[in-house]
């Protein structure tokens, strides 16, 4: 119990220290605004951003955009990560599958995510299907790679335990390979969420934001519109929301994976 109290205390200490820089920057901003040295149009005042946020919450546009982005990211991530898990397992466990698919997957992985946009929009148009596919594609590769690497890099001593205990293939996979690969699989999961989140913004910002087939929704479209209308206050708010939700997602997956591999850290 004492140890837990201690770790809780040190944790809040870490959080406090992490907040020093953002709070200092915020104070500097308020100070500069009060001194009247901020140039209109380039840097807006804190009070104006606050007012815009208030307005955005009142008419629901800001939480609506955030929610649309979050749902889109999670949908694409779930699809891509699941496909990546399946593919990674097959490639990690079967030498034949590796020979068949590994070179192709490795080549496709080299293509930058946004370079898929022309191809995908030709096939799928510029609607939701295209955006989700792009996000899923981004999530797929890190997940597949992490899973495959984890399965292939199970330490030989653990594999030997499976051999001397005469475990059959299925028992070897479930009791040795997958648990041993789990840290790598979870690292792939974290990275895939990160890529999915970045990809979601890119998809919203670059595809379907008024130029091609009308305004899209989500924070990406919100930011694109803000930029178009030179609304620096909205730009700042959009960026802030992207950062906050992104870090929230990251922490969620991190906490989840720490729980799953609690055997690793005493």
């Amino acid at each position: 119990m004492a140890a837990m109290d201690f770790s809780a205390a040190s944790r809040s200490g870490i959080v406090a220290r992490a907040l020093v820089l953002p709070v200092a920057l915020l104070l500097l901003w308020v100070l500069l605004d009060a001194l009247g040295v901020l140039k209109e149009g380039i840097v807006v005042s804190p009070s104006q951003v606050f007012a815009t946020a208030h307005e955005g919450f009142a008419d629901g546009s800001l939480p609506g955009a955030a929610l649309a982005t979050l749902l889109r990211a999670l949908t694409g991530w779930a699809i891509g990560a699941f496909a990546g898990l399946v593919f990674g397992l097959v490639l990690g466990l079967s030498g034949i599958a590796r020979n068949l698919f590994d070179p192709s997957i490795s080549s496709l992985r080299q293509i930058a995510l946004f370079a898929w946009i022309p191809l995908l929009s030709a096939w799928l148009g510029n609607g939701e299907a295209m955006k989700i596919t792009l996000i899923a594609l981004g999530a797929f590769f890190p997940m597949a790679l992490g899973t495959q690497a984890g399965c292939q890099n199970v330490p030989a001593p653990f594999r030997e335990v499976g051999r001397v205990l005469e475990l059959d293939r299925r028992a070897t996979i479930t009791t040795i390979i997958i648990p041993a690969a789990l840290p790598s699989i979870l690292a792939g999961l974290e990275l895939s969420l990160n890529i999915a989140w970045l990809g979601t913004f890119g998809a919203e910002y670059l595809i379907g934001t008024g130029y091609i087939n009308g305004m899209g929704d989500g924070l990406g479209a919100y930011l694109a519109a803000a930029r178009e209308h030179a609304r620096m206050d909205q730009v700042l708010l959009g960026v802030l929301f992207l950062a906050l939700i992104g870090i929230g997602l990251d922490r969620f997956v991190l906490g989840f994976s720490r729980r799953l591999v609690s055997w690793r850290t005493p």
Binding site: P157, F158, E160, T175
Partner: peptide, 9 residues
């Protein structure tokens, strides 16, 4: 020599 217990069990 290195006990080789599976750490997740």
């Amino acid at each position: 020599q290195d006990h080789r217990l599976l750490p997740w069990l």
